Amino acid sequence: MSSNVVVVADWDIDGVVSAAQIVYSQEVVGKYPLDGKRRVFLIPSTSKTLPFIFNEVSSLNVSHLVLLDIAYSRDVMFFLKKIKSLNIYSIYIDHHISSFIYSKTIESLVDEFIVGKIPTAYLVYQLMNSLKISLTSRLKAFIEAANTIEGGKQKALNRKFIQLVIAVSKTLAHSRNREQWEKLIRWLSSPLPQTSMPFNINIDKFIEPQKNSEDLNLFANELALRAEKIFNVRFIDARKTRPRYRPSAIASALYRIFKNPVILLLNNKEDKSYIVVKSKDSTAYIIALELYRKGIAIDIMGHQTLSYTLLRDDVDINQVKNFIRNIILKKM
Rank of each mutant, 00 (worst) to 15 (best):
I53M: 00
L254G: 11
S175V: 01
V6P: 02
E222A: 13
L68M: 06
R256S: 14
L225C: 09
H64Q: 06
A146N: 07
G15I: 07
Q210S: 15
S190F: 02
F54C: 03
Y102S: 13
D94R: 08
F142L: 14
I162H: 06
R234N: 12
K104L: 13
V5G: 06
I230C: 02
I328L: 15
I97P: 01
K81N: 03
R226Q: 10
S130V: 06
E222W: 12
A146V: 09
L86R: 14
W181K: 02
D75L: 05
Y92A: 03
A224F: 09
N158D: 14
V23D: 07
L86H: 00
K330S: 15
K37M: 00
F219M: 00
I250M: 07
K160R: 12
E228H: 12
V16Y: 05
L264H: 15
W11P: 07
K269T: 09
N217R: 15
I83D: 01
Y308D: 02
L266G: 05
I298D: 01
L34T: 08
I324E: 07
Y308K: 07
A288C: 00
N212K: 14
R244F: 14
I296N: 02
L188C: 03
L86F: 07
E56N: 09
K31D: 11
M301P: 02
A253G: 13
F161V: 00
T46E: 08
Y32C: 07
R38E: 11
P51G: 02
I317W: 09
M332R: 14
K272R: 13
